[in-house]
Simulated assay, not measured.
Amino acid sequence: MWSRLKTELLNGGSFPSLTEARLEVSYSIVYYNAGRRHAVLSYRSPE
């Protein structure tokens, strides 16, 4: 999870504020845990 987060979200980027950085990280975590498709689930999201 963390290596993917660093690669996709933080790689060379910057955020205008700490609040915006926290929001982006929160959205990424929610997507990673609930929205992305999983091979184990026949490429469906957990929701």
Rank of each mutant, 00 (worst) to 15 (best):
M1T: 09
M1P: 04
M1S: 13
R4G: 01
R4F: 05
R4E: 13
L5Y: 14
L5C: 12
L5S: 02
T7D: 12
T7P: 01
T7H: 11
E8H: 09
E8Q: 13
E8A: 06
L9D: 01
L9K: 05
L10F: 14
L10C: 11
N11K: 14
N11H: 09
G12Y: 03
G12A: 02
G12R: 06
G13F: 00
S14D: 06
S14I: 00
F15N: 01
P16Y: 02
S17G: 03
S17L: 03
S17I: 04
S17R: 02
L18D: 08
L18W: 04
L18A: 09
E20I: 07
E20D: 09
E20C: 01
A21P: 01
A21L: 13
R22L: 06
R22E: 06
L23R: 11
E24Y: 06
E24P: 00
V25C: 10
V25Q: 05
S26N: 04
S26Q: 08
S26G: 00
Y27N: 12
Y27D: 08
Y27Q: 12
Y27C: 07
Y27H: 10
S28W: 15
I29L: 15
I29S: 04
I29R: 14
I29Y: 10
V30L: 12
Y31W: 14
Y31L: 04
Y32R: 13
Y32V: 00
Y32P: 00
N33Q: 14
N33C: 13
N33E: 13
N33L: 15
A34Y: 12
A34Q: 10
A34P: 00
G35Y: 11
G35K: 07
R36V: 01
R37E: 12
R37S: 08
R37N: 05
H38E: 13
H38Q: 13
H38V: 07
H38P: 01
A39S: 15
A39Y: 10
V40A: 15
V40Q: 11
V40Y: 11
L41T: 05
L41I: 05
S42A: 13
S42W: 10
Y43N: 13
Y43R: 05
Y43L: 12
R44N: 14
R44Q: 15
S45G: 07
S45M: 06
S45T: 05
P46N: 01
P46Y: 03
P46E: 03
E47S: 04
E47Q: 05
E47I: 06
E47N: 05
